[in-house]
Amino acid sequence: MEKLAIFDVDYTLTKKETLAQLYMFMMKKNPSFIIHAPRSFFSAFLYALKFFDAKRAKENFITFIEGIKEEDMQRLVKEFYEEKLSKILYEDAIKMIKKLKGEGFKVYLISASPEFYLNELYNIKEVDKIIGTKFRCSNGIYSRKMEGENCKGEEKVRRLKEELKKDNIEVDFKNSYMFSDSLADKPLFDLVGNPFLINYKKGHDKIKILNWK
């Protein structure tokens, strides 16, 4: 049986929220993308007020990818990783990935952020599997519409088990690890024997807290 080291991404591996970083990166490359700003940030505001659920808010926020060709997106996310994403990773997170990989764990990154750019984190050679929210790419053109559900909460567990079944992997969850900055990942925390909260300010009586820089 395999042991997993599961990591959330935003504010767990990274110091900043990655989707907002992607949008700012793309605006820097093409200032005309500013046209999407009112809708994107209004959607985030309505989500905070609970008028939008996470799926609707994310589909509205990410309008800036609408109509981008697949080959152009591949070039953009490669540049995004090299110029921005790789620069906002916590050093302590990378050390933990390397440590657990060296001890024989399979390293899984599971995030609600879009998979089309999270896949650039395969540049971290220790990463075995990346699972994120999928967005439609039809006939080589990207859409803001999700494929399936937002990869958050219970959906993370469902997607993980789906991938494990597909890869025919049996897991020793009791001796596996999960790292996240948020209790929104309680379903994954409950799955493993070694849960850790990252940079969590409130304290917790059951889950150990690690402070990463």
Rank of each mutant, 00 (worst) to 15 (best):
F173D: 08
A184T: 14
L197C: 01
S180E: 05
K202T: 08
H204G: 08
D167Q: 15
L188C: 07
F173W: 14
D185M: 01
K165F: 11
F189D: 02
Y177R: 07
K166F: 12
N168D: 09
A184S: 15
Y177W: 01
E162C: 13
I207L: 00
K165G: 12
F196T: 03
K206S: 11
R159G: 14
K161W: 14
R159F: 14
N168R: 15
K186Q: 08
L183R: 12
P195V: 13
N194M: 00
I198G: 00
P195G: 10
N194Y: 05
I198S: 02
N175M: 00
D190S: 08
I207E: 03
A184M: 06
D181W: 14
I209S: 06
R159A: 14
I207R: 07
K202A: 13
D185F: 02
L191F: 05
I198D: 02
Y200D: 05
P187Y: 01
Y177C: 05
F189C: 05
D185K: 02
I209F: 02
P195W: 10
K186T: 10
D167G: 11
Y200S: 02
K201Q: 07
K161R: 15
K165D: 15
K202L: 13
P195T: 08
I169A: 14
L160N: 03
F189Q: 05
Y177K: 00
Y177D: 02
N168C: 08
H204I: 00
G193D: 01
K161D: 15
K186I: 07
S180L: 01
D167L: 15
L164C: 13
F179Q: 04
D205K: 13
Y200G: 00
N211D: 04
D185L: 03
D167K: 13
F179Y: 10
I207G: 03
V171W: 09
H204M: 01
H204Q: 08
K174G: 12
K174M: 13
L191A: 08
F196D: 02
N199I: 00
S182K: 03
H204D: 12
K174E: 15
N199S: 03
E162T: 15
K201E: 09
L191T: 05
I198T: 02
L188Y: 03
D167Y: 12
I198F: 07
D205Y: 11
P195Q: 11
K174P: 09
V171L: 10
K201C: 08
K206E: 09
D190Q: 09
Y200M: 02
L210R: 09
A184W: 04
Y177T: 02
K201S: 10
I209L: 01
S176G: 11
L160Y: 08
S182D: 05
N168F: 08
